[in-house]
Amino acid sequence: MIGRIDGVRRNERMKILIAVTNTPTYGEKDAATGLWLGEAAEFVDEVSKRGFEMDYVSSKGGFAPLDPRSMKKAYADHATIAWYRMPDFEERALACTLRPEEVDADRYDALYYTGGHGVMWDFPSSEGLARIGLAIYGQGGYLASVCHGIAGLLYLQKDGEYLVAGKNITGFTTMEEYLSGHSGDIPFWNERVAKAHGAVFRKKRPFASFAIQDGRIVTGQNPESPRAVARLLLENIG
């Protein structure tokens, strides 16, 4: 990337690309899911304080549905609702996300994969999101994820090898899937796929905030972890 020194662009406005889901239900079942709001809003709240601009992309572009549970008072803090109320966030992050072909990877210091169960259907199969992720990483940028957003990392391959192979990473755990009440609805298990693809999967107790870095990959375990991911990422690019 032109102007990048030690993995960070200089003399340009700092930007982070945020990936969100287009998937509104658990596969073909009549059960709503989508983006977990706090996993976008809490991350954005942290990085915006450091002067970063954000763009939002999804596998198809356009509308990003919200998991209705993420709007409950128990999960959505004041900052999350404050961002939800902002017209710019509502339009760019939820209503009119970019299509992958509209994204110039050279403009971003990092790609952050948000969670919510919906991403398990569209992140792994999106060639466009994979292209962007590999491009940002290949030019010295960072890849970050939280919770189910790890699905965006697990299937990335470089030179025939999984990018997560040998890396210390974390994401929504098998136990957390059981506790979420939707273990029978998911297409795969993040923790199991991570291990099958050669990653070293780290975790804390269920629903405790936890983020970990290995090189230029930063991951968070669950919905309690987006701020921890943001702060760890900012130590490197902020």
Rank of each mutant, 00 (worst) to 15 (best):
L179T: 03
W189G: 06
V193F: 08
P187A: 03
L153F: 14
F210H: 12
M175D: 05
H182M: 12
Y162H: 14
L153Y: 07
V146D: 06
N168T: 04
E161M: 10
H148Y: 12
R202K: 15
A208Q: 15
K167L: 04
A208N: 07
E191I: 05
T174L: 14
R205P: 00
I169V: 14
G181R: 11
G149D: 00
G181W: 06
K195R: 15
R205E: 15
M175T: 15
G160R: 14
K203E: 13
P206Q: 08
V200G: 04
R192A: 13
F207G: 05
H197D: 00
F201R: 09
G184A: 06
T173E: 04
G152N: 01
K158V: 14
V164N: 08
S209G: 12
T174S: 15
T174D: 12
A211H: 04
L154F: 03
T173K: 00
G171P: 05
T174C: 04
L156V: 04
F172L: 14
A208F: 12
F172S: 03
F207R: 05
F207V: 01
N190R: 00
N190I: 12
K195N: 00
H148I: 05
Y178E: 13
E176T: 02
G198Q: 06
E176N: 01
F210W: 09
K167R: 15
F172I: 04
G181P: 02
I186S: 04
C147I: 05
V193R: 09
L153W: 13
D185T: 00
E176M: 06
L156H: 04
H197E: 02
K203L: 06
H182Q: 06
A199G: 09
G152F: 01
P187E: 02
G198V: 09
R192F: 01
F207M: 10
D159E: 15
K195V: 14
G184C: 05
E191R: 02
T170F: 08
W189L: 11
K204D: 00
I169W: 01
H197G: 05
L154E: 09
R202E: 14
K158D: 10
G160D: 00
E176V: 02
A196N: 13
A165C: 13
E161T: 08
I169H: 01
I212D: 01
E176H: 00
G184H: 09
S209L: 04
Y155N: 11
I169R: 03
A208R: 14
K203Q: 13
G149N: 09
M175C: 07
V164Q: 05
A196G: 11
P206H: 01
V193H: 12
V200H: 15
A199Y: 05
L163S: 10
A151M: 01
I212Q: 03
A196K: 13
A194C: 04
F210D: 02
R205Q: 13
S145D: 09
K203S: 13
R205V: 13
I212V: 14
H148C: 10
I169C: 02
T173S: 15
G152R: 09
